[in-house]
Amino acid sequence: MKNSVTTGARLFGAGLRALLALTLVTGVVYPLAVTGVAQGLFPGRANGSETEADGRVVGSSLIGQAYTLPPEEGQETPEPDLRWFQGRPANGLGTNTLNTEYRLLLSGATNLSAGNEDLVRQVEDAKAAVVKDNSVPGHAVDPSDVPADAVTSSGSGLDPHISPAYAELQTRRVAVRNGLPVARVERLVEDHTEGRTLGFLGEPRVNVLALNVALRELSAQR
């Protein structure tokens, strides 16, 4: 009995030493070396691809933002600021629960199933809002023209992109709200539409932050 206990302890000791040695290799040397190379070669990307406009950081080109009006008193969800192009809904972000001293950038999906009535309602409400917000005098948005990405939450809740169709759908509203000609805003969207990478990877898309930064510059010029 004593023998098997000592054998077990010896074996556990060997396992622990192997773990610590491999921790040194894979948990200290490896990440530090990768960090060194990353910070040396690609400092901008390694630190979050921050985007500047007018000399100040306005976010990351990779992270979606909310373009909302300052919330009024007692208001829980702020209203969208319709001067700017709007990103996708983000209904699954969650809240800062464990560390309330922070207002951390959180990520998450709704995880609602395709048959869930709450999700059906979310989609229908979002579609009605998109139609209402984007219908301008003389041009009513047809609900069947609203693309799927405009009414669904993304996987991360931080999707920086919208489909070219959703961007196009917003051009009239944005033009009216900013006092710009529709054709000019349409060209802005075209200029900011990325095709598929290498022609076949992923989907065509528009980066909402880059588009809004360019829109603000355009409005300021006038």
Partner: peptide
């Protein structure tokens, strides 16, 4: 094909998916 009431209402199975990957990449 996006069967399911919510996906039909949305017009595509984009709930929980990112625009850059699309349905194929996902």
């Amino acid at each position: 094909a996006h069967h399911g009431p919510a996906l039909q209402a949305a017009g595509g199975a984009m709930e929980g998916k990112e625009v850059r990957f699309g349905i194929g990449g996902s």
